[in-house]
């Protein structure tokens, strides 16, 4: 039940954003609100479990404190790391100085939500690209400038595992 409601709520929010400025009731017209509610309910009932595995994941998704932390993370450390990543790639495109390799780190995350958040962060930040992840949540990472063949998680992705744990675990 919680699953369907959360998915439906997400669908409803996206629908309302897309049909903003359409009418008289605030920003929306009455027809849009009714159609949106019906469609969101249908989508929630059909695709009830796309956003996570267990009930616990959905409780996390409905927690506003986690969303606030996520936004802080997105505009703060994440954006800064992304900026550094791009300067780094620019440097390597121009000079052609690379030393690539695939390494393995085990950040010790337990939930799938945190693992996917960390994986996406790793892909967009300096010199690293997630290649695979196994059953014990060990990450296989392609590193463009290998400094140490068996690094610790902090050496590769800084404070990201701590953020991922705080946001989604």
């Amino acid at each position: 039940m919680l699953r369907s409601l959360t998915t439906g709520l997400g669908a409803l929010v996206i629908y309302l954003i897309l049909t903003m400025e359409s009418g008289s009731l605030g920003l929306w017209s009455l027809e849009e609100l009714i159609v949106g509610a019906v469609l969101a309910l249908g989508v929630g009932l059909i695709a009830g479990r796309v956003l996570g595995k267990g009930e616990a994941d959905y409780k996390k998704l409905l927690n506003p404190r986690r969303w606030a932390l996520f936004l802080v993370y997105l505009v703060g450390p994440f954006f800064f790391a992304m900026f550094r990543a791009n300067l780094d790639v620019a440097y390597r495109v121009i000079t052609g100085r690379i030393k690539p390799g695939i390494i393995k780190i085990s950040p010790g995350l337990k939930s799938d939500l945190a693992a996917s958040l960390l994986g996406n962060s790793i892909t967009l930040t300096p010199g690293t690209l997630t290649v695979d992840i196994d059953k014990e949540n060990n990450f296989y990472i392609h590193w463009i400038n290998v400094r140490n063949p068996q690094p610790s998680p902090e050496e590769v992705c800084g404070r990201f595992p701590r953020w991922a744990r705080r946001i989604a675990e």
């Binding site: 690379i98 690539p100 390799g101 695939i102 390494i103 695979d132 392609h142 290998v146």
Partner: peptide, 15 residues
């Protein structure tokens, strides 16, 4: 990687 493309000039390949 799973279809067998190896990283060129790789220093280490934990995979």
């Amino acid at each position: 990687r799973r279809s067998g493309v190896l990283p060129k000039r790789a220093v280490v390949d934990a995979y």
